[in-house]
Amino acid sequence: MIASTRANLVTLITAPTVWALHFLVCYVTASAYCAKTMADARVFTGTSWPDITVARAVIAAATVLALGIIALCLRQAWGHWRSGDVDPPFDEPSFEGRQGFLGFSTILLCGLSIIGVIFVALPAIFIGDCR
């Protein structure tokens, strides 16, 4: 993210870091929100479960933000990967070799992080209360 023309380790770990932070935000939000709203809720009150729209909105916003940052990261990494004329396995001690290696690794990590972020956010779509 910091280097726009040269790939480095920071760009490499940006996507997994965003994924980890998104995971933390989602779980802390859901658990804190449910702990607060469920404090007075009785188990057997039947249908009157606390509304968790606020928690779901926070998770949705965090997901959009995370996917946005990862998308930027992916765009940049794509540029790094495509900039040189080097083919895998990128093991030459040259600038192009490093660009290619870091760019391609970042692309793979971005893909993994996108799937991770979506999987973390999916329960908020299907589970509408704190049970």
Partner: peptide
């Protein structure tokens, strides 16, 4: 990449859809 992602996503969605049913309240 594509095949495991699609399969895992489908299984996750299937499982998540079942979870609210498992935790449904009693009927009286």
């Amino acid at each position: 990449v594509a095949f495991p992602t699609v399969v895992l996503t489908a299984l996750l969605i299937y499982g998540l859809r079942l979870m609210p049913v498992l935790r449904a309240s009693g009927e009286g």
